[in-house]
Design a protein around this nucleic acid. Structure first.
Lengths: 159, 159
DNA sequence: CGATTGCGGTTGATCCGTCAACTATAATTG
DNA sequence: CAATTATAGTTGACGGATCAACCGCAATCG
């Protein structure tokens, strides 16, 4: 009568799961608030700019962005709309395939990313990294990489 | 020129952070999809029912729910609206303070939670717990508990 | 080739959650 | 006790993301 899910999860497992959920919610909320306050940009915006900055020619097809960010194609369309009207991104069409439309980082977008990167990375350090020793970071990286989407080998969701 | 944030984060730190973000997005999306498909309910709904089920009298003030779920009070009002009209929750007023309104789990809500709990916890096992040994779960719990919101000692956000 | 099928992207409707403003009640203070 | 201030909750307007439907183009298959 006392509990439902908790009764089905033993102590450490429950702790791990709850900390995982709560810490994520707390940290992301704070990061977003920082980024918005300091640069008028959400973490999603930042993520898109970052992916573009790392891509050849600083441009990516919309679909690639959608996959990287784990948004739907329609979600990306709208997100990019915003960045375009902010002047941080341009749409350029693809010569070899008229269906695809690239999002390309503008110089202004690159500069914005550079500026935001400083404070954002500092926030990530403060909220996440600084709570661990380098050895623990490695442990954590190794553990988390095994989760679905974590980037490790067994990350296939068995679709 | 090659990277922005990554250049500022060394390898393991970047891996840990990225795995943390991506795994969370992937897992939560899958859990939500499962819960919706099998029980017509979001993880937020589930969370609210769960908190209520663990509360004395199976009821909690709206504000308490808001705090537990990390939603705003207005967000909780709307979420609870939905659960009320689904018959899983009732609103009951407080006799000692006319401002507070409790959300109370109905029998139907309890039953629904019980049913959903089975599959939901199974999904959590599959997506999260099963990737680790018991010892690793403990490690993970210990590490994550140190993060903001993770429930550990230093979890104060220094407001 | 011409028709079908598939892919990339956008749009309309909708849902979910926030913020800001508001109401009503309680607590405080002079 | 009256006036102020604080707290609990709801509501309206809005933003962000999804789904489903769609358009245009490419690729494939007869």
């Amino acid at each position: 009568m006392e509990a439902i899910a908790p009764a089905l999860l033993d102590g450490a497992a429950l702790d791990a799961w709850r900390s995982y959920l709560k810490s994520h919610a707390t940290i992301l909320r704070a990061l977003d608030a920082d980024l918005i306050a300091q640069h008028g940009m959400t973490t999603r915006d930042y993520e898109v700019l970052l992916y573009l900055s790392q891509a050849p020619d600083r441009k990516l097809p919309m679909s690639a962005l959608a996959e990287s960010t784990m948004l739907t194609r329609s979600g990306i369309t709208r997100l990019v709309d915003g960045l375009v009207s902010a002047g941080l991104i341009e749409r350029v069409s693809c010569r070899s395939d008229a269906r695809v439309s690239y999002a390309q980082l503008t110089d202004a977008g690159y500069e914005k990313l550079r500026q935001a990167g400083c404070t954002h990375v500092a926030s990530i350090r403060e909220m996440f990294l600084e709570h661990f020793t380098p050895g623990e970071i490695e442990q954590l990286a190794s553990l988390l990489s095994r989760l679905p989407g974590g980037g490790g080998v067994g990350a296939c969701t068995a679709e």
